[in-house]
Design a protein around this nucleic acid. Structure first.
Lengths: 321, 321
DNA sequence: TTGTAAGCGTTATCAA
DNA sequence: TTGATAACGCTTACAA
C-alpha cells in the first residue's frame, strides 16, 4: 500500500506538503505541487479513507433511509440509488441503506431521507448531522425533487394541444406535497385554458384506476385525455379503456408520471412525464456532500425539469411499432 | 464520543481488555467481561469503525457490481440490494454500488458481483480480495442463487397436475447458467412424465413473447400451459392469449419466474416462481463477510428454494378477485 | 511556504 | 489472563 509518506519521500518533501496538495492546494507553491502530483501519479497513490476519516473525525459513510414499505417499493428507488451511489463514489463516500424504522442513527456524516411522514420529523429534527430529503416537503428541509408541477403542466398542455375536449386528472389519494404539486400543475394549466378541472383520487395501484374507469365509463366520452399522477395509475386506465372498447389514442389519451420501468413493459407503451431519476440521485448526493463540507449550511430546494415522452397512448405520440 | 478508553476507565481495566472483550472474548475472564459489558452499556459505547478499519488494515466497505445495462435493470436488483444492505449493516459494513465497467477496484474488503459475462472473469480473477458472485456460474466461483432448476420443475409439475395437454417453455435466448438450469428443470420433469418438451427462446421482453405467441397462435391449441423463464415473458404471453381470444386460465395457463414487482401490476395477476430475493441478498452478504473473516476460504454454492405462487393465470390458482 | 510533532480510536505484539 | 507500547495513515496546530 502506498501512503502519504511514500509519496513524500519520492517527491522529496514532507508528508504535510503532500497532504496539503490534496486538501489545501492553494497553500503550496506550484513547483512543489507539480513534484507531488507526478510522484502521486507514478506511485498510483490512493488515500486511505479510514485514516482520513479517523483524523477528521468523519465516517465517510452516509445513510440513506427509504421510509416506505418494501412492498410498495417501486423500481423507482433502484434508479435513484444508482444515482446516489454515483454521486457518493466521486467523493469516496460509502452508503448504508436503511429500510426499517428501528435503525442505528449514529455513525454517519449525513443522511438522505425519502418517504418521510409527519411523525418522522420528530427524530429527523434530532439528527446531529446534515440531512437532505429526497422529495418535496414544505417544512423547510433542504431537498431535491422533480419539478412535479411543471411535469403535469407539460402533460396537460400536450393534451390541450392535441385538442382533447375533456382532460381528467387521476391522482393518488395521499396528502403529500408531490401530489399537491402535480394537481396544481394540472389545475393551473386547465384554468388558463378555461377548461374545467376534474380530479379523481385513489390508491396508487393499476387495479384501482382500472376498476374506477371501468365503473364510471359512461362519464368519459370519446375525446377524453387522462393525466395520471403515476405510471401505475396510467397503466390501469389504459387497461380499462381497452376493456371498455375505447379507441386509444384516437378517442382517448393517457399520460403517466415517473417514466421508470413500468412505462416500458406496458403495451401500448405509455406516454409519460419522465423523471430524471438517476440525475436526481446524483444531485441529492452532491447536495448532501456539499452541506457536510459547509458544516451544515442550508442548501435550499432543487427542482429538476422532467421530460414529457410522447408515445402510443396519446394523439401526437410516436406511432405504434 | 465514547471511546475504548472511556469504557476502560469506567470498568477499571486497560483498553486492551475492552478490545479483547469485543474481539476475543474467550481470552478474558468472565468477571472482567461482565464489568466491561456493563460499562459499555452504561456509556452506550459505539466502536469507531474508521479506527478499527485503520488498525486492521481493513476498509469496512464492500463493493457491489451490477454488470448490466442500467436500462435493462429490473426492480429485481432493488430488492436484492435491500437484502445485501441488511446483511452488511449487521456487521457494520458499508456498500459501494458500482454500475459501469471503468471503476475503482481498490479500497474494499471484498466484492459481490452480478451479471458477469465471459470477458469479465479476466479482471475478476485479478481481484485481490474475496469475491462472491450473485447468480449461478460454472467456473468455480462461490455464489448464491435461487434454485432455478427446482423452480421450473415446480412450475412444470403444477401444470402437469392441472392436466394441461401441452406444456411449452418460453425461454430467454442467452447462454447463461440460470437459463440452462431453468430449461433443465422443465425438460427433466416433462420427460419423466413422458411429455415432449418444446422450447422457444427470445429476448427477455414482454413485447417479444407477445409477438411470438400471436404470430404462432395456431400452434398452441387450447389446453396449453406456458412455463416462462421470466415474468416479463409471461406478461407478454398473457397479453397475446387475451388478444387472440384464448380463455385464461380455462384453456391456457401461464407461469412466470421471478416474482418481483411485475407479477403484481399485471392483470390478471401472474402465477409465478417467486425468488426470495431479499433473503438472497442477505445470504450473499453473509457469505462474503464470512469469506473475508476466513481469509478468503472457498464458500461453495448456495441454492435457495423458490416458492411457486399460484394466481389467476393458471388453473388451480387463486380465484380472480 | 514548508516542516515537526502530536493525536484521532483501535489492535497486534510482547512483556509481566 | 492482563497491560504497556507502538503502529495503522492521515490532519491539525504550531514552529521554523
Amino acid at each position: 500500500m502506498i501512503t502519504l509518506s511514500d509519496v513524500a519521500k519520492k517527491a522529496n518533501v514532507s508528508k504535510m506538503t503532500v497532504s496539503r496538495v490534496i486538501n489545501h492546494p492553494e497553500q503550496v507553491t506550484d513547483e512543489l505541487k507539480q513534484l507531488v502530483f507526478s510522484a502521486m501519479k507514478e506511485l498510483n497513490y490512493r488515500p486511505n479513507v479510514a485514516a482520513k476519516a479517523l483524523a477528521n473525525n468523519r465516517t465517510q459513510v452516509i445513510k440513506f433511509f427509504i421510509l416506505e414499505d418494501i412492498d410498495t417499493t417501486e423500481p423507482y428507488y433502484m434508479t435513484l440509488l444508482f444515482g446516489i451511489a454515483k454521486g457518493l463514489d466521486e467523493k469516496q463516500y460509502a452508503m448504508q441503506l436503511i429500510t426499517n424504522r428501528n435503525f442505528d442513527l449514529d455513525y454517519a456524516d449525513g443522511y438522505i431521507i425519502t418517504g418521510a411522514r409527519g411523525s418522522d420529523y420528530e427524530w429527523i429534527d434530532r439528527l446531529e448531522k446534515p440531512v437532505v430529503l429526497f422529495g418535496e416537503n414544505r417544512n423547510g428541509y433542504d431537498y431535491v425533487d422533480t419539478d412535479n408541477k411543471l411535469g403535469t403542466q407539460m402533460a396537460t398542455q400536450a393534451a390541450l394541444a392535441q385538442n382533447y375536449a375533456n382532460i381528467v386528472f387521476i391522482g393518488i389519494d395521499v396528502k403529500e406535497p408531490f401530489e399537491y404539486s402535480r394537481e396544481a400543475g394540472y389545475i393551473n394549466t386547465l384554468q388558463q385554458a378555461q377548461f374545467m378541472p376534474q380530479i379523481h383520487r385513489m390508491g396508487n395501484h393499476s387495479h384501482a384506476s382500472e376498476q374506477f374507469i371501468t365503473a364510471h365509463w359512461s362519464q368519459f366520452p370519446p375525446n377524453t385525455a387522462f393525466i395520471c399522477a403515476s405510471d401505475r395509475l396510467a397503466l390501469g386506465v389504459v387497461r380499462a379503456i381497452q376493456h371498455c372498447g375505447g379507441d386509444l389514442p384516437a378517442d382517448y389519451g393517457v399520460v403517466g408520471f415517473d417514466g421508470v420501468f413500468l412505462d416500458q413493459v406496458s403495451n401500448p407503451k405509455l406516454s409519460t412525464v419522465k423523471q430524471p431519476v438517476t440525475r436526481l440521485g446524483e444531485l441529492v448526493a452532491q447536495m448532501l456532500l456539499q452541506k457536510i463540507q459547509q458544516s451544515g449550511a442550508p442548501q435550499g430546494e432543487l427542482l429538476v425539469t422532467p421530460e414529457l415522452i410522447m408515445r402510443h397512448t396519446m394523439r401526437g405520440g410516436a406511432p405504434q411499432t
